[in-house]
Amino acid sequence: MIEIENVRKSFGPLEVLKGINLTVAKGEVLTVIGGSGSGKSTLLTCINGLEPIDSGRILVDGIEVHARTTDLNKLRQKIGIVFQQWNAFPHLTVLENVMLAQVKVLKRSKAEAEAEAVRQLNHVGLGDKLKVYPSKLSGGQQQRMAIARALAMSPDYMLLDEVTSALDPQLVGEVLDTLRMLASEGMTMICVTHEMKFAREVSDRVAFFHKGVMAEIAPPEELFGAPKDPELQKFLAATH
């Protein structure tokens, strides 16, 4: 379970998260939508402790992320995160990309790591690209590789930050299919996305962020069908 309690976060004078309260249960798929600069990415990077927070707290399975005593490297093993772009380590092959952290962090043997990497890469449909360098992959393939790399760590949570927004339209589908598959397998996920159709389809709940505030959160039928927040209404009108 991820519990976010009254989290505030500023970059200098700019308050990016203005008291966020949110709980994501095991197995839940939450999608986060909202305008540019509303604090969606920042929230994800706070959840795995890449960014410090100013007040409030975030608990992952009861462990306070920003507590001084928390071993962040250990906690991050539970939380897979895939960013918008620039995810692939360019000096490693696809296979090595997926093996690296398994060997370094989980201390798996090379053979174990390779077997798991191959399994995950097959899972996302990259089984034939093992020895290829990322520069030879399309953007969609790179994103799927990043997803496989995160999954190979056997995380309990996946945080996905607009993993399709840097892609050409024809590549979006393949990545979304991968995410749908994950959702159907019961992975706990927080997906920041601009794909409204996708959000409607896979989410248990959808959260709308506006200027650092979570203005509305509801199951997709409700949030898209009968939006209450005026900013959300504007946002949805603009994206249709």
Binding site: K74, I81, R149
Partner: peptide, 23 residues
């Protein structure tokens, strides 16, 4: 070295030292 790559490495649970030596 793009900051995003280093964040990706740290997100995978790699330590500062592992990020420095491997990435």
């Amino acid at each position: 070295v793009p900051q995003t790559l280093r964040r990706a490495a740290r997100s995978l649970g790699m330590t500062w030292g592992q990020d420095m030596t491997s990435i």
